[in-house]
Computed example of a mutant assay.
Amino acid sequence: MATPRPARAARVLLPTLLAALLAAGCSTTIAGTPSPDPAPPPTEGVGADPVAWGDQVCGALLSYYRPLTARPDYEGADLPGIKDRLAGYLGEVRGGIDAGSQQLTDAGASPVSGGDQFKASISDLLNRTGTTIDEARAEVDQADPNDVPGFQDRLTAAEEKLRTIGAAQGLEELGATPRLDKAVDAAPQCGELEELTAPA
């Protein structure tokens, strides 16, 4: 059997490659009965305003989710083109993760109970996802467009790594966090994040 030409192979290799990327979201509902919050609010910095703090933390996730949802357009691409566009896409996602991690650092300590755990869960998500994106990018970088079966194997390996991307962990243990809930509800970037991660 003749080896498929790269241009033809480009049209048949990618029907599911990126489908897994958006399968996992970070939409979390924090349940509980409102009660007094014992955390003393900071008197300066971002943490002096719970809404501003929540907005910056949600902005850190947006820095990651925006490029993640901007899927590459492979229309008319041959195998080298597919490799370049996919590598560029993964690079944009990695850049968003790095920017988000810096935003989390800049946000500082939480002014409300539960906020630091919320922030730590997001930091863990970004760190784990960054490692996965790096591993997927390594597979794509090693894909040889002149070796069609090997190229497909590399992209399949990248897809399998991307399927492991999950959501923030530990948020179910927060319990009642009325001030955090209020801050998140009022923060503009948290609202944008909720819309972006809402099930289709």
Rank of each mutant, 00 (worst) to 15 (best):
M1V: 14
A2S: 14
A2V: 14
P4F: 02
A7L: 10
A9Q: 07
A9I: 00
A10S: 04
R11Q: 15
L13C: 14
L14E: 09
L14D: 14
L17T: 14
L17Q: 05
L18F: 14
L18H: 09
A19W: 08
A19R: 13
A20T: 14
L21T: 12
L22V: 15
L22M: 11
A23C: 01
A23R: 12
A23G: 04
A24F: 04
A24C: 01
G25P: 00
G25S: 10
G25E: 08
C26S: 14
S27N: 12
A31Q: 13
S35G: 12
P36L: 06
D37N: 05
D37V: 09
P40L: 04
P42L: 07
T43C: 04
E44M: 07
E44L: 12
G45V: 07
G45P: 01
V46W: 07
V46M: 10
A48Y: 03
A48W: 09
A52C: 03
A52D: 04
W53L: 08
D55W: 05
D55H: 08
D55N: 13
Q56S: 08
V57S: 06
A60V: 06
L61A: 12
S63N: 06
R66T: 13
R66H: 03
P67K: 02
T69L: 04
D73P: 00
D73Q: 05
E75G: 11
G76M: 00
D78P: 03
D78I: 01
G81V: 02
I82N: 01
K83W: 03
G91D: 03
G96R: 10
I97L: 07
I97E: 08
D98Q: 14
A99N: 09
G100N: 06
G100P: 00
G100Q: 05
Q102E: 13
Q102F: 04
L104A: 05
G108A: 11
S110V: 08
S110L: 06
P111V: 10
P111M: 10
V112H: 07
V112E: 09
V112M: 10
S113A: 15
G115F: 11
D116H: 11
Q117W: 02
Q117G: 05
Q117M: 12
K119Y: 05
S123A: 15
L125N: 08
L125P: 03
R128H: 14
T129P: 02
D134M: 08
E135M: 12
A136D: 07
R137Q: 13
R137W: 11
R137C: 00
R137Y: 11
A138F: 02
D141V: 15
A143G: 06
P145I: 00
N146Y: 04
N146C: 01
V148D: 02
V148I: 09
P149E: 01
P149Q: 06
P149S: 03
P149G: 07
P149A: 02
Q152F: 11
Q152H: 14
R154T: 01
R154A: 15
R154L: 08
L155N: 03
T156V: 05
L162W: 12
T164G: 09
G166A: 15
A167L: 10
A168F: 11
G170T: 05
G170D: 08
G170I: 03
L171A: 11
E172P: 00
E172H: 10
E173H: 12
L174K: 03
L174R: 06
T177E: 07
P178K: 03
D181S: 13
K182W: 07
V184Q: 06
D185E: 10
P188N: 01
C190V: 02
E192H: 02
L193S: 03
E194R: 13
L196K: 10
A198I: 01
P199Y: 03
